[in-house]
Design a protein around this nucleic acid. Structure first.
Lengths: 343, 343
DNA sequence: TTGAAAGCGCTAACAC
DNA sequence: GTGTTAGCGCTTTCAA
């Protein structure tokens, strides 16, 4: 089997030196049109292409970026992070890079959690998607590798970050409710420490304020341990335990909890959307096949991956340390859990 | 910023030669316990790791495999091929390889369809998922790169192939129908040239034969142009145009067409499952939120990716050209489109 | 058992 | 404008 041609073969055949070929291939410095033409002809004849590892070695660049997320995020059935990943894969191709994927345990452990591509200098930059152990971030930073975080924000530290526009999404949700005539609009949230949930709460509050509505305290449940479905259920129970001044609509901080709310309502004969309008956030897959289909805020996961790649590639190109914080678009998806009849 | 240590640094500090360090790192030949211990200590002190591009250059191996699929397969909303891809990503990590992804146009065009990683010697093997232009396959073959095809079979040529067990799936579907008391079981298929559809048809025929049932000609529609939903609709129309001897159940060669059948039935007041039992194939996402939910054959997409990786890695390791043909598991998913009431 | 040296294929000063 | 040369960091004969 014939070996593939090297730069040497091209040089020999074109009667020029290695460096001339290199110059032609990389469009560097000036090469006379004649020799350029000749070299190019030979390159085509031979089907020459530079070998990536040789070039990588000489340039100390790999042409790859790393994509890190935790195991559980990669394997969970709701394809949130995998969609971000696929969006990144989609975009990276246009830039002639490749993505190397590594999933790591939730708990950082220096001996086995460090992606091999970091150790082996096999990436020129890294995207971290979702919350990972902060030690991981620190490690990447000490290596001096450009870094972009997607759907994860670390307070008090300056990293480039891509997050969905939680504030705006919440605002849209609440405005939608208001436009349907609702005034008593509740909020069910999980851990407010979670930066996304916090922004959604702020969006909720300010949207109400903007409409001149002063929310009652017992419309709001924000002391839930986390954002899983069961907490939505519990939140609804808390909300409806008090008879007086019940909300007619609820903005739930994510779809998982919204599903819990719907379950509670079904069990307690509260009709959605007639007795109660419900609106979620995230547009998870389950949200479009519950009964009634859930109105929610769609998050463009692929876009987050695409913009993450663009942002990272920019910081690789620039040597300066510009920090960018980008909020990606969200969109109200109107389904059935909230209609005008209820007003 | 301190440069990362090289093999040279280790050698110097441990007072040995480069080659000794290399031997230790790679567990080659015999190194005296003393020096091995000393070298290993220094490696840990310095946090040394071999650089992938340097090693790749010396060994003429990249440590990567390529994953090729067509653009339309990558971007289509039904995540069939992306699930195969994610399964492959999941598996590859265990083997200390990386996957480089390339999507190519449906129509092969030598100037722009060839993944860069092939040209730049950046992969040690390739997985091709789904049907691609045969020229692509040929090109990979002439490069002498190990190849595995997933969900694509080329007749008359010997390649390692991973396909779902179409035959068995069809058999299970039909047996399920029979176990519900159905005897008049129809088949709606698309292009029988498609190897998967063909196998499903054979599975259907033999399952009937096994039960001593001789299918009528007008139970069977297999002259449809392709396997899209509208063809299922048309197929159902053909089937029901003849009044006499209608089937009481239909095995449809894929879910997309099954959805078309259901649409036809809804429009023509044929009740599923009471008037007609329907069973599909593929377990696409839509199949679990149609009304009624479709009983179907699940294809384990992730497993196809996992086994694809294992198979490819084996052929990379062996230098011999063993060809493997693997049929991955399928599973009957019982939902609502086919119950006992109808019998 | 270990070391010296050549080579993997490419880039980048620097010289001419 | 183009060639010479010295690396980039590693592996692998071949000697000792």
């Amino acid at each position: 089997m014939s070996q593939r041609p090297t730069i040497k073969d091209v040089a020999k055949r074109a009667n020029v030196s290695l460096s001339t070929v290199s110059l032609v291939v990389n469009n560097k410095s000036y090469v006379s049109p004649k020799t350029r033409e000749r070299v190019e002809r030979v390159i085509n004849e031979l089907g020459y292409h530079p070998t990536s590892s040789a070039r990588g070695l000489a340039l100390r660049k790999s042409g790859n970026i790393g994509f890190i997320l935790t195991n559980d995020h990669f394997t969970q059935s709701e394809p949130f992070y995998t969609k971000i990943f696929l969006g990144a894969e989609f975009e990276i191709q246009k830039h002639n890079y490749y993505i190397l994927l590594a999933t790591i345990p939730k708990q950082f452990n220096a001996s086995n959690s460090i992606p091999r591509f970091l150790l082996e200098k096999n990436v020129d930059g890294v995207i971290v998607a979702g919350r990972v152990d902060y030690k991981m971030i620190e490690f990447i930073e000490t290596m001096g590798i450009p870094l972009v975080l997607i759907d994860y924000k670390i307070s008090n530290r300056q990293y480039s970050t891509i997050v969905m526009n939680n504030y705006k999404g919440a605002e849209q949700a609440v405005k939608h409710l208001i436009s349907h005539g609702h005034k008593k609009i509740g909020f069910i949230g999980g851990e407010l420490q979670h930066p996304s949930i916090k922004q959604r709460y702020i969006g909720y509050s300010e949207a109400l304020a903007g409409a001149g509505i002063q929310p009652e305290n017992n419309w709001i449940v924000k002391d839930l341990p986390d954002t899983r479905q069961m907490n939505g259920y519990d939140g609804a129970r808390k909300l409806f335990s008090k008879k007086e001044c019940r909300p007619t609509a609820i903005f739930v901080a994510n779809d998982a909890m919204a599903l819990g709310v719907m379950k509670y309502c079904k069990e307690n004969n509260i009709k959605i959307p007639d007795d109660l309008a419900v609106i979620g956030f995230d547009n998870i897959e389950a949200s479009y096949y519950v009964e009634p289909k859930l109105t929610t805020i769609d998050v463009n996961k692929e876009e987050m991956g695409i913009i993450g790649v663009q942002t990272l590639l920019n910081s690789i190109k620039e040597k300066t340390d510009i920090v960018r914080n980008i909020h990606t678009s969200v969109e109200l998806v109107i389904r059935e859990s909230c209609n005008s009849k209820g007003c």
